[in-house]
Amino acid sequence: MKGPGARQKSPWQPVILIALVAFAVAGVQLSGAREYLQQDRLRALIGSYGTLAPVIYVLIYSLAPVLFLPALPLTLVGGIVFGPLWGVVYTIVGATTGASLAFLAARYAARDWVAARLTGAKWERLDSEVAQHGWKVVAFTRLIPAFPFNLLNYAFGLTKVRFAHYLLASFVCMLPATVAFIVFSSSLLDLLGGRVSPALLAGISLILVVVLVPVCYRRRKARQGGFAATE
């Protein structure tokens, strides 16, 4: 039985997102709204807030996993506002901090509440795998999504994995998807303005890799009856 926010996310959601962006581009071009979406103007506006802007962004991103809020919209905003370099830095810091807060909440503050929502063979097997393989399971589930991400952060807090190992594995293994989506979103306003940049093509390629590798892996493991195929 799955708890609140535990609905499995479709692995094709990023691909659907790209299709929606394509429709948005057409809408902007037809409506004549491109003059209001100048990336330089937007970044200059955000820059006028100084260090407060990235602090607020990281803070909001840190709270998203704790509150079971979707992180993808925030990631896209990070790329648009801060660009490919600082967007990755601020986003991975926020994502890692949020995952850590959920972990610590489950381990020290809300253990009973989390345990009541993590019932069934799937979660019992996760606990057993962590007991045997430790941080490697954290790394595996970050790279090959087999569980709802936000609830997974809490679930690891109930396992015996060391916090330092969880923190490092989460940081490293969330980086590929973070880089892919930030590189993509950093060129979104250019795309809405009708210009296809190399960064945009690179971002789309990276997203496809991030999406298709787990899909192919899980299908392979499903045929073999492996851990990743557990539902």
Rank of each mutant, 00 (worst) to 15 (best):
residue 57 Y to L: 11
residue 167 L to K: 08
residue 177 A to V: 05
residue 188 L to Q: 09
residue 61 Y to L: 11
residue 61 Y to P: 00
residue 50 G to Y: 09
residue 210 V to E: 01
residue 183 V to F: 04
residue 17 L to F: 14
residue 155 A to S: 12
residue 201 L to V: 14
residue 154 Y to M: 03
residue 38 Q to S: 07
residue 121 A to S: 13
residue 49 Y to N: 01
residue 217 Y to V: 15
residue 1 M to D: 11
residue 159 T to P: 08
residue 103 F to G: 10
residue 109 A to Q: 03
residue 137 V to C: 03
residue 211 V to A: 04
residue 6 A to P: 00
residue 22 A to R: 11
residue 117 R to Q: 15
residue 112 D to A: 13
residue 153 N to Y: 11
residue 89 V to S: 01
residue 66 V to M: 06
residue 223 R to D: 10
residue 172 V to S: 07
residue 123 W to R: 00
residue 95 A to W: 02
residue 209 V to I: 14
residue 153 N to F: 12
residue 75 T to S: 14
residue 52 L to H: 04
residue 87 G to N: 10
residue 170 S to P: 05
residue 4 P to W: 11
residue 110 A to H: 10
residue 196 V to N: 06
residue 188 L to W: 07
residue 48 S to V: 02
residue 117 R to A: 10
residue 225 G to Y: 07
residue 152 L to Y: 10
residue 149 F to R: 00
residue 220 R to I: 10
residue 178 T to K: 03
residue 140 F to G: 09
residue 119 T to Q: 15
residue 175 L to V: 09
residue 53 A to L: 02
residue 62 S to I: 11
residue 141 T to V: 14
residue 202 A to W: 04
residue 79 G to F: 06
residue 152 L to V: 07
residue 11 P to V: 05
residue 154 Y to W: 03
residue 21 V to G: 02
residue 58 V to L: 13
residue 138 V to Y: 08
residue 190 D to S: 14
residue 122 K to F: 08
residue 177 A to N: 02
residue 141 T to H: 05
residue 198 P to H: 04
residue 8 Q to R: 12
residue 81 V to H: 02
residue 190 D to P: 03
residue 45 L to K: 08
residue 131 A to T: 06
residue 195 R to F: 01
residue 102 A to P: 07
residue 139 A to K: 03
residue 37 L to W: 01
residue 41 R to F: 08
residue 124 E to W: 03
residue 166 Y to D: 07
residue 11 P to T: 03
residue 213 V to A: 02
residue 100 S to T: 15
residue 20 L to W: 04
residue 86 W to Q: 11
residue 67 L to A: 15
residue 161 V to R: 02
residue 182 I to P: 01
residue 93 V to H: 07
residue 105 A to F: 12
residue 97 T to F: 14
residue 29 Q to N: 13
residue 229 A to K: 07
residue 221 K to F: 10
residue 50 G to V: 06
residue 77 V to T: 14
residue 224 Q to S: 13
residue 219 R to F: 09
residue 146 A to Q: 06
residue 56 I to A: 15
residue 222 A to F: 04
residue 179 V to H: 00
residue 100 S to E: 11
residue 194 G to L: 14
residue 202 A to V: 12
residue 75 T to M: 15
residue 90 Y to D: 09
residue 17 L to Q: 05
residue 195 R to A: 08
residue 29 Q to G: 15
residue 68 F to I: 14
residue 144 I to T: 01
residue 13 Q to P: 01
residue 201 L to E: 06
residue 198 P to Q: 04
residue 156 F to N: 09
residue 76 L to I: 15
residue 21 V to K: 01
residue 88 V to H: 02
residue 130 V to P: 03
residue 102 A to D: 12
residue 76 L to C: 10
residue 120 G to I: 04
residue 50 G to W: 05
residue 108 Y to D: 11
